[in-house]
Each structure stands twice: as structure tokens, then as C-alpha cells.
Design a protein around this nucleic acid. Sequence first.
DNA 1: TAGATTGTTAATCGATTAACAATC
DNA 2: TAGATTGTTAATCGATTAACAATC
Lengths: 213, 213
Amino acid sequence: MKTLRVPEATVTRLSIYSRYLERLDRNGVTTVSSGEIAEGVGVSPAQVRKDLAYFGEFGTRGVGYNVKDLMRYTKKILGLDQEWPLILVGAGNLGYALCTYKGFNSRGFKIVGVFDNDLTKIGKKIAELEVLPMEKMPEIIQEHKARIGIIAVPPRAAQDVADFMVKNGLEAILNFAPVALNLPEGIEIRNVDLSVKLEILTFNLGFKSAQRL
Amino acid sequence: MKTLRVPEATVTRLSIYSRYLERLDRNGVTTVSSGEIAEGVGVSPAQVRKDLAYFGEFGTRGVGYNVKDLMRYTKKILGLDQEWPLILVGAGNLGYALCTYKGFNSRGFKIVGVFDNDLTKIGKKIAELEVLPMEKMPEIIQEHKARIGIIAVPPRAAQDVADFMVKNGLEAILNFAPVALNLPEGIEIRNVDLSVKLEILTFNLGFKSAQRL
DNA sequence: TAGATTGTTAATCGATTAACAATC
DNA sequence: TAGATTGTTAATCGATTAACAATC
């Protein structure tokens, strides 16, 4: 792997190519061109080739890419050739949905601990897993060698949860609470905001109406 | 509103500024500078001013921005000065979580119909709403003048649901299924992929380990 | 007035695309 | 060989940032 800086957009697309290749493979397709991938996921063929070029040469000129091989390469690049144990905080509706979300399991993600500080939730079961009090987190992190945490709590609690996760050794956080978190250098953090994309839609609908006037 | 093309990243940030301003307002802050907003959401002060400049002049030189006013302006720009009725298809765990998600309501989004084609789900209640069969969708869309649909079904069903939504007049779709949808020109579509950001994290964790070698 | 902060221009930076030699 | 498609370079495009005049 080159130590060149890879644009985050490239990694995002790689994840999408990867899933598309899985589908092609399931459908029995053995060879694919950059143009077909591009068509399938909605980007340009040059984009596909450029993205892949950050990591190596995976195709055959005049022929295209072997679907199975490229699928494996892309998953390997993304780190999906291994299982990733996840620590989840927040056993509300969103937490429940994430626990049962098949899209995680199929990519090698496995939630190994669900935590909450709400006494009415602790002890309940979510898909095989008992909701645990926060104090148990260090133990579970150690047991599974977890490195990634997911925050699915209300905004006001998110920073405390993040601090607690970092204190206990987690290195990366996926945050579903709509707030910017303050974390020490070196901790990877990404936000998933369920409402932002919806607001892009409302913006665009309004914008189009305005232009029609 | 200028008819200039606005970068999508600007709209995304506007949504984030807007939420941050709401928080400042709740905390009783009356005036804020571009530098403080930048600090609060993690971008550069120039970025904040540039983003706002697409839509007008909202500040006072030497002073900053009035929090309440700027909050109202940003919400208006995003189309959040009105209620948006939403049509949701998919009454599984994710659908359930979205129905009860407070982040939607607080921004003026209101799910007015939940649909599924699973007979075991139809008739059940999710937070005041009865899960309806797909055939009822046209009626509900008309009744509420809904323009936006949310897809929370498994990937293989997503395209059919999208086609059905478009056929019944919806103009914009938020898609939680991890597939690229094919839709006619003019239909706004955005995907929310719960797993992609997680894969960016695993990529970065792997990348960092590789660089340490 | 002196200090502060906006709005905006120009410079910089980075990402996408077009084009084509390499090569199957 | 002729046709196809990759990998890569150079050109283009667009977004971010630095800098500063305007002005409170």
C-alpha cells in the first residue's frame, strides 16, 4: 500500500464499488470493465480507474477486471478482510436498529457490547446481547480487543460518552448524535447525521421552485 | 435567493451551522462571529463566511452575527421554515427507529405514513401510526401533499419501492438501502449508508498501522 | 479613533476528467 | 492484426483559504 494521501471521497467510493462487486459476484458475473462499474454506481469510468490506481494495478488491459479478485482487493484495502468488534453506546430505538442491522454483519462488523446508563434498559436483551452498564465497558473492550465505538445517544450525552470511550482505549468513533465532538489528536471520528441529507433534499426542492419563478 | 449553483458541501455545512446556532440560542447566546461558529463545528472562519455569502449578507462588520436572526435565515434557506410530511416505506427495525427519531421532528420533518408489504407488519402501530399496505400510499400522499419519501427496506426491494414512489408523485427520496437507484431526471435522490463511514474508519485504522511499519 | 469582524477578491490547493500510450 | 480497455499524465474544473478593503 502506497503511503500517498488518499482522498476520503476515494475511500467512500471504494466502499461502494466493493459492495457493487459483491452483487456482481453473487449474480455470477466474472469480468467487469471500469465503464460497467461506473455505470452501476453512478460515477465516471476515469474516476473508477483513478480510485483504484491509488492502491495498485488490478486489471488487465483490453479485458477489464476479474470480479472476484477485485472484490477481494477492495475489501482488503478497506480492512474488511477481518472481523471488527464494535462497542455500541445507546440502547434506544436507533441503538436497537443498529444492533439488528444486517448491513453491518455482512461486512464483517459485529457489535459485541451494548451499553446504556438508563437503569430501565440495563439488563434487557437486544438480539442476544444484554444491555450493560457503562462500567462494564473496559472489560468488554479488552475481551474482544475492540477498537471502534458507536455513539447512539442524545446529543447532550454524546461528548461524555466519547470521552469515556477514548479513556478506555477506543481509537475510532462513529457518532450518530448531531453534534461536533471534541476529541484528542489521533482519534478517528466520523459523524452520520440522519437529518442532513434530508435537509439537502428540502433545500433542493425549494431551490427548484425558486428557479421556476 | 441567487440562482447561482451552490456546492452541496455548502448546503451540508449550512445544515450543521443551523443546528449549532439553535444550540447557541438555547444557551442564551445572542451574538456570534464566523470564528466562533467555525470553532464550534470544525471548519475555517473563511469557510463559514463564504458559505453564507452564497445567500446574502447576514452579519455586521466589526460585530458578528445575531444568533436568532442567522438561525432563522439558515433554516429558511434550507426550507425548514415549514413542515415536511414524509412517506416511509419499511417497517423493520430501521423504519421503527426513524419513526421515533427526535432529530427529525425537531427540524420540522413529520412521518405521516408508514408502509410495508409484509402482512405480519401491516396493521401494527409504530408511534401513533398504523403500518399500511403499499396500495394506500397514493391516498396518504394526496392527503398530506407529501413530496419526500424514505426507503428503509432491504437492498433488493429498494428499486421497486423507489419506482412506486415516483409513480405516485414523490419528488425526492432518501434511501437507506445500500444500492444505487435508477430514477428519472428531476427526481432528487440521496443515499444514507450506515456502513460506509464505518469502513472509512477501518480503512484509516489499517492505514495508520501500515504507516507505522 | 482604534479594534474587530464582515464580505469579497485573488491565490492556492486538490479533485475530476479528457486523452492517449501501453498492452491484452 | 484489430479492437478493447487499462493505467497514467496533463488539462480542466471547482472548492478552500489567505488576505484585505469596507465598515461597524
